[in-house]
């Protein structure tokens, strides 16, 4: 796997390596992507962080 996120014809002052970053998306992100791609019938996805109802009603 290529390591440099920036690729060019010179060395940048602050190279950005893949290893320095969050290498992989979290399981939650991966699950959301997969689930949204297969929505239908019993395949439903609910947002984990966008729950706006505060329970007052």
């Amino acid at each position: 796997m290529e390591d440099n996120l920036l690729k060019g014809n010179f060395e940048v002052k602050k190279p950005i390596k893949l290893g320095d970053q969050e290498k992989e998306k979290s399981v939650g992100e991966e699950l959301k992507k997969r689930a949204l791609g297969t929505l239908g019938g019993s395949m439903v996805y609910m947002e984990r962080k966008h729950f706006t109802w505060d329970g007052d009603e």
Partner: peptide, 26 residues
């Protein structure tokens, strides 16, 4: 010219990495 490419479509690392890319050089 001196050229660098950052391929966000391929990497999809998000905003923080794009910011670092912008700060990687002048």
């Amino acid at each position: 010219h001196l050229v660098q490419v950052y391929d966000e479509n391929a990497w999809r690392k998000g905003d923080e990495v794009i910011a670092k890319v912008c700060q990687a050089d002048c």
